[in-house]
């Protein structure tokens, strides 16, 4: 199942961005008229700077997120995390530290877990992304989601989607042989509530195939 849906940032943001840019353009136009010769004024009137900036700023990005193909235009400075949350409304992936230190933004890129906050969206062009929203099959939760609920693997829940994405990847990576190993290879996901013992239990249960 795959549909193509062109996406832009949410309307509110687009408008505020437009307003800011209009202000900049108007002020730079006034400055240009006041200080510079005719060619520059003409350039400003034709919005050449705006058109040029547009060419440099946004580039095409193709992603398949949770089985759905998307084609977007994004600025190079936009991260994968921001595309997921702000462009695609997939807000299950959380922005925690935004510096690769907490793991709340963990998603799978071509099946490999990464910190989406440190990944510029454009570097992921053509790749398959799985987020927390893509784990369940219709109404049926992923075994790891079931296990987190059963073992109380969270309190406030903010780190949980990252914890679960990491845990699912961990089992595939084959580093869940002992509690020590699970803790070491889950160390990129910080939980301020301290639900670690229950997170380890949940992972061990899914590894044992008991759910």
């Amino acid at each position: 199942m795959s549909t193509t849906k062109p996406c832009t940032p949410t309307d509110g943001e687009d408008n505020s961005n437009g307003t800011r840019r209009d202000f900049l353009k108007q002020t730079s136009l006034l400055t240009a008229i006041a200080l510079t010769p005719g060619t520059v004024v003409k350039a400003a009137e034709n919005q050449w700077d705006e058109k040029l900036a547009g060419v440099f700023e946004k580039q095409a990005l193709h992603l398949e997120v949770n089985g759905v193909k998307h084609e977007l235009m994004v600025e190079p400075r936009v991260t994968l995390l921001e595309v997921l949350r702000e462009y695609l409304d997939l807000t299950g992936t959380k922005k925690g530290c935004d510096r690769g230190q907490c793991g709340a933004c963990t998603v799978h890129v071509n099946g490999v877990r990464v910190n989406s906050c440190l990944s510029l969206a454009l570097t992921n062009d053509g790749k398959k992304i799985t987020t927390i929203e893509g784990l369940a099959k219709e109404e049926e939760l992923h075994p790891m989601q079931e296990a987190f609920i059963k073992h109380d693997g969270f309190q406030c829940g903010y780190c949980t989607s990252g914890q679960i994405m990491s845990a699912v990847a961990l089992l595939k990576e084959g580093h869940s042989g002992s509690e020590t190993e699970i803790r070491e290879f889950m160390s990129g996901n910080i939980c301020r509530c301290g639900a670690y013992p229950n997170i380890v239990k949940a992972i061990q249960e899914v590894k044992g195939g008991m759910v």
Binding site: V112, R113, V114, N115, S119, S166, L170, E173, S187
Partner: peptide, 9 residues
């Protein structure tokens, strides 16, 4: 060094 996610990247 780092975390599994960072080592993957």
């Amino acid at each position: 060094g780092a975390s599994p996610q960072l080592r993957n990247m």
